[in-house]
Amino acid sequence: MTRPKPEPVQVVKARRDGALRALVAGVPYIGFLGIEFERRGDELTAVLPYDAKLIGNPMLPALHGGVTAAFLEVTAIVELAWASLWEDLEKGRLTPDALAAGHLPRLPKTIDFTVDYLRSGLPRDAYARARINRSGRRYASVHVEAWQDNRARLFAQATGHFLMPGPDVSGPETVPEPGGK
């Protein structure tokens, strides 16, 4: 009776953190907003550090409603992409090095996204977590919650539908890809 020896914890963490870093670094807009992702096992928390350029109403001041929408949409897309590469990553079919070298999975495409603004976004850091309510071969439905000071006092929530990437679905419509693949 032999059982494979468990991987050393630092190997596991390096693989998962490396993959997450590569996934997030591949999207310029995530860097533009300054969004970071924290990981506990497979659970992700998106963090939006406060920045003056995120303000929509300078009189209050309050975060721009569009920033809040974008933060929630980014959280949903990264959660879906992360969930879909998790198994390949853990089974060794995908390595963080390959991801970092640009072999990134195609990202899900947003079909629709509905944001519910519950209270004003304050000029401080914001956090969000996404929950995949359904993930089929082609379509996924995701709910996202965002908060600032208190986890139980959400300042926004959203629901969105996404088209999952696959060999037979390339999007509602495809556009020519500049510079080939």
């Binding site: 999207v27 310029p28 807009y29 980014v74």
Partner: peptide, 16 residues
């Protein structure tokens, strides 16, 4: 850009 493969702007910027 939201999709590095295509250069398409992220939906979040369109939302803003």
């Amino acid at each position: 850009v939201g999709d590095p493969h295509t250069g398409v702007i992220h939906g979040g910027a369109v939302s803003a």
